[in-house]
């Protein structure tokens, strides 16, 4: 344990990194399947079946990353967990109800009598929408330091909309990759309609963060940090431009480059995430509690870390296996 110096320093950092990784993976993975849910009312009956088939084998494992992220917050930073979740009591409850509705709708829409299918389709849409909106709202409130004023609530309402549109965007890019024909063309149109949400959402968080906190302002706009950070917004801008360009030419005749928008959007999400992580470090409750103040006892963190080092590669391995098995264009789901 002395290998890397004081475990009370590097263990919290390691767990903050793990938690960040889980949140990032969650936002990308559940982001696309929530997005598909938000887009679902725009599709025809047959298209809905195919859209849901494209996420059917994955959604459950995707949501598990949320459980892991909240689990790490819970186990590694227990006081922060309590502070954040009691502050976000109502949006968390709305998100959970949304997750329940959409999760069971997957099953019920396929198994309940046909006359109920429209009801469960609605539950799938509303559940996805509630989840996306409440996550965006929580993101906004978090950026605002969990302070409740009319201004912060307004900001949170705006990020709620932007994140929902951003999820629909990554959902549309997923569909571009996983579908063909008319649905694929529709998905390109949806992506074109949603890209502004990504831009405005990332812009809003980027602009707001430094002005909420003088500390973050200094971290961004001092020399030499500003030059080291400059690649983040520049690369993001370049990616958005590339996406814009690609969407004009998709779908191509031989379906080449159909994967590009999805992959580019993931990179975009990763860049945005690093920007946020850089701004907020070392705070886990913005401007109030640092990861070091709230970390569990080193011996407890250590025993989790050992397990994590063994298990995380396995999780990543068989998650990759699932994506390989269900690669290619989505077809109607069946248990056969």
């Amino acid at each position: 344990m002395t290998l890397f110096g004081d475990p009370a320093v590097w263990l919290p950092l390691a767990f903050a990194a793990l938690m960040g990784l889980s949140i990032l993976i969650y936002v990308v993975l559940d982001g696309f399947d929530l997005g598909v849910g938000v887009l679902s009312p725009l599709a025809s009956e047959e298209e809905k079946d195919r859209m849901i088939a494209s996420i059917g084998p994955f959604w459950d494992a995707n949501e598990t990353w949320l459980v892991l992220a909240i689990g790490i917050l819970l186990v590694a930073f227990p006081t922060a967990h309590g502070a954040i979740l009691t502050a976000l009591y109502l949006p968390v409850a709305i998100m959970l109800i949304g997750l329940i509705l959409r999760g069971v709708a997957f099953e019920f829409r396929a198994k309940a009598p046909v006359r109920w299918k429209a009801f469960w389709d609605k539950a799938f849409f509303w559940g996805s929408l509630m989840t996306s909106l409440s996550q965006g709202y929580m993101l906004g409130l978090y950026v605002m330091g969990l302070q409740v004023t009319w201004f912060t609530l307004g900001f949170a309402a705006i990020t709620a909309v932007f994140l929902t549109v951003a999820y629909s965007f990554i959902g549309a890019t997923w569909l571009i990759m996983k579908t063909d024909g008319a649905l694929q063309r529709k998905s390109v149109a949806w992506a074109k309609g949603g890209i502004w949400g990504v831009v405005l959402g990332m812009g809003a968080v980027s602009v707001a963060s430094p002005f909420v906190s003088a500390r973050i302002f200094d971290k961004w706009f001092s020399v030499p940090e500003i030059f080291l950070l400059a690649p983040l917004p520049l690369m993001s801008a370049a990616l958005v431009a590339l996406l814009w360009y690609a969407l004009r030419y998709l779908p191509t005749k031989d379906d080449s480059w159909a994967w590009f928008p999805f992959v580019a959007t993931i990179v975009l999400f990763v860049l945005g995430f690093f920007g946020m992580a850089y701004s907020f470090y070392p705070y886990v409750v913005p401007e109030q509690l640092t990861i070091y103040e709230t970390a569990s006892a080193p011996e407890s963190l250590f025993i989790i870390l050992i397990g994590t080092l063994f298990v995380l590669p396995m999780i990543l391995g068989y998650t990759a296996l699932a994506y390989i098995i269900f690669r290619g264009k989505a077809t109607a789901l069946s248990y056969d």
């Binding site: 459980v67 999780i315 068989y318």
Partner: peptide, 21 residues
Amino acid sequence: GPLLAYEVMTAFFLEAVFLGI
């Protein structure tokens, strides 16, 4: 904490991923 973490890591992902398969 560690007990819940082990539940998530050794069980939840295993069941969720292989359920799809």
